[in-house]
Design a protein around this nucleic acid. Sequence first.
DNA 1: ACCCTTCCGCAGCGATCGATGCAGAACGTG
DNA 2: CACGTTCTGCATCGATCGCTGCGGAAGGGT
Lengths: 202, 202
Amino acid sequence: METKQRRPTGRPRGFDADEALERALLVFWEQGYEGASLANLTDAMGISTTSMYATFGNKEELFRKALERYTEGPSAYLARALDEPTALGVATAIFAGTVRTTTRPTGPHGCLGVQGALATGDSSRGARDLLVAWRDSGYSRIRERFERAVDDGDLPPEANPALLARYVTALAYGIAVQAASGVSRDELQDMADAALRTWPPC
Amino acid sequence: METKQRRPTGRPRGFDADEALERALLVFWEQGYEGASLANLTDAMGISTTSMYATFGNKEELFRKALERYTEGPSAYLARALDEPTALGVATAIFAGTVRTTTRPTGPHGCLGVQGALATGDSSRGARDLLVAWRDSGYSRIRERFERAVDDGDLPPEANPALLARYVTALAYGIAVQAASGVSRDELQDMADAALRTWPPC
DNA sequence: ACCCTTCCGCAGCGATCGATGCAGAACGTG
DNA sequence: CACGTTCTGCATCGATCGCTGCGGAAGGGT
């Protein structure tokens, strides 16, 4: 089975699809799904609308792929944070990663998963629902990690993993909103450090 | 001085401007500034675009007035919260008000000041900047209230009012984001209650 | 060198965006 | 009732929205 050779050859692509997607990600990140027009996107990607549609499908598909890239790139700190040995370590790493990613000196401020499509019109409900699912997935993974921490005896038996996960995600989203408003990295990190001093909050 | 009689008479308005503004507020709240089209707005307001422009100026002005109405209506809990006698009472009231306002059984979920225009295209930068200023104003008022709490001896002298205000606003924005995702009122209130059990976080 | 396949530039699609001009309707005032 | 003033309904503006058809350009396989 030669499933490897899918493309029966032809004119090769004149641009780097990965780099184009990275550019699109930055536009979505900064302007949101609705605020990013096709002209904005293709200009930043350096390709024509024809190439964009041929390569990525349509605007919503492009957004979906940009979100995947975001998850595996700027937002990869979440997966790493879940590997920390303690619940406190997990929370600490999540906050540190959130602060760093939402306040990069170069690049958009805030979190794509929050500001990409928080409230939208009907025509953008697909992107909005996608981000709702994305945020819910992050919450669920944190909650499961805290459930394991209770099982491990790392967190006390009376701890509420779901509630703790809501707390961590809420603070992370709050950091993201403030970063989008222009609040500095140091100020947000100091706030996160203070919050962690009373961990766990119950 | 007869400044009272400004209008030299004429055909009276055929609709209630206050109610129309309330309807517009709900649309902006649910769909965001960019997601709310003129057609969406005027349909909900029950008036023509001509009447809208004659009465409110343009879309950005309408948004500005809707935000004012939001501040004095759904978001009025903030001003009341600042009158609480203690910093803990202030934080408690802010969280309770945020949870209640962002999860109203009837009406949009989330906070207009957050999801109204968090990340936008160039053409909506006016609305975006307006909300940045709105959020910053809320933060500043809370910070000043906490400074007073330190002066009063309510908060310990080593407390950091700016940091505490960042914490409260972050958690409130996080609640708003989760409410926009559909998280229930009870779950968010339980989380806020847990966070308040370790007040102040430093 | 030929052919087949894929990609790209150009132009333009219908729809919707925010915003207006205009003429007549509807009122308070004299 | 006539007038002056304001508001409203209709039609439409140019611009932009996301998206696509088409024909030629540019490659790889044989």
